[in-house]
């Protein structure tokens, strides 16, 4: 009987305790994650022997001291994390960890979604992936070239519109996914509406609401803080693996289109990984050809959503008008008033 074992739960604002968790993670070869909101720690007397964190609907930073493995401590941590999530109204959860723990988490009711490079795993405790895959299957179209684009469109620019038109021309059918996570300047509902309005004239495009499985806080948490240059390469790879192995086959996707990235290193890096991972001839599922489409320019500068946001900030509406479709411009003008 372990009467000396105690469990505590605390928020990320508890700096002293969080620092101890970071130290413990370091010791166990794991990184601290800046988006964790709730931590759970297990102590024996005063010594930390296990910990875990909850970030939105994702469990992460789960570690057990090497001398205390095999005692079921991981089950204790996960129980407390589930309770913490449940208390906050979140029942369907994801989990980030390392492959050696798959068995333990399966015992906790999680299923493997994808493993990447023998380094990280993504799991979930709902059956949502299977449901999503079935939904995708029902939207499958026939054709030799089935294209795909994933975009945030924050907000929708003439650059996006050009990329979609080009991809549409080169595909028998095009599946367009809009990042669903509401973590950007513009709300999802607005972003997807502007896209829909902007491409009304294209007849071979399905616009999909994104999901937890496409550039979300579950598959790719650091995407949403990429301005801080903190993108974790392994997250990018994981996201691409999920796309190739868990989603693309259900729609029969053969191509993925992406705009060239002249400015943002992080996005450029993501594009390079995309080629490596999606097009790799050896993989669990059929390779996907990656097509980079040159960005269109205005006044010698590539059109991008970040440029739109910058012009908005500078209140340079005249130049702004030239790089977004009229629907987006109208929306932006209404927004500022």
């Amino acid at each position: 009987m372990n009467s000396s074992i105690s469990v505590s739960e605390f928020g990320s604002d508890n700096k002293r305790r969080v620092a101890k968790v970071k130290e413990f993670l370091d010791k166990n070869g794991l990184d601290m994650s800046s988006d964790v909101e709730v931590f759970v720690t297990i102590k024996d007397e005063d010594e930390m022997i296990a910990c875990g964190g909850l970030a939105g609907k994702v469990l992460k930073c789960i570690a057990v001291d090497s001398s205390r493995r095999g005692q079921g401590l991981i089950l204790k941590v996960v129980t407390h994390l589930l309770n913490a999530a449940f208390t906050r109204g979140t029942k369907e959860l994801f989990l980030f960890s390392t492959p050696k723990n798959i068995k333990f988490f399966e015992d906790c009711g999680f299923r493997l979604i994808e493993e990447c490079d023998g380094e990280v795993i993504l799991m979930e405790n709902s059956k949502n992936l299977a449901k999503y895959q079935a939904e995708l299957s029902s939207l499958k179209k026939d054709g030799d070239v089935i294209g795909s684009i994933v975009m945030n469109a924050n907000p929708f620019t003439l650059g996006h519109s050009y990329l979609i038109e080009e991809a549409s021309k080169r595909s028998d059918w095009l599946h367009l996914f809009v990042v669903k996570e509401d973590a950007s300047e513009f709300k999802f509902a607005d972003r997807i509406r502007l896209i829909r309005e902007g491409i009304k004239h294209l007849k071979n495009v399905t616009v999909h609401e994104g999901s937890d499985y496409i550039i979300s806080k579950a598959t790719f948490p650091t995407y949403f803080i990429k301005d801080k240059g903190q993108v974790n390469e392994i997250h990018a790879k994981l996201d691409l693996n999920v796309f190739r192995n868990q989603l693309a086959p259900y729609l029969g996707i053969t191509h993925r289109f992406v705009g060239t990235e002249p400015y943002c290193k992080v996005t450029n890096n993501y594009n390079q990984n995309m080629k490596k991972i999606l097009a790799d001839p050896n993989g669990k599922s059929a390779p996907i050809e990656v097509v980079e489409i040159e960005r269109i320019e205005f006044a010698d500068q590539a059109i991008s959503a970040s440029r739109v946001r910058k012009l908005l900030n500078e209140k340079n509406y005249d130049e702004l008008k030239n790089i977004v479709p009229p629907t987006t411009f109208e929306f932006l003008m209404k927004e500022i008033i």
């Binding site: 204790k76 129980t79 589930l82 449940f86």
Partner: peptide, 19 residues
């Protein structure tokens, strides 16, 4: 309300209840 009880530990059961 939604509520839960139990643990995921061996010889236990973890239960979640929802309306």
């Amino acid at each position: 309300n939604s509520a839960h009880a139990g643990t995921l530990e061996s010889s236990d059961i973890y239960i979640q209840i929802n309306p």
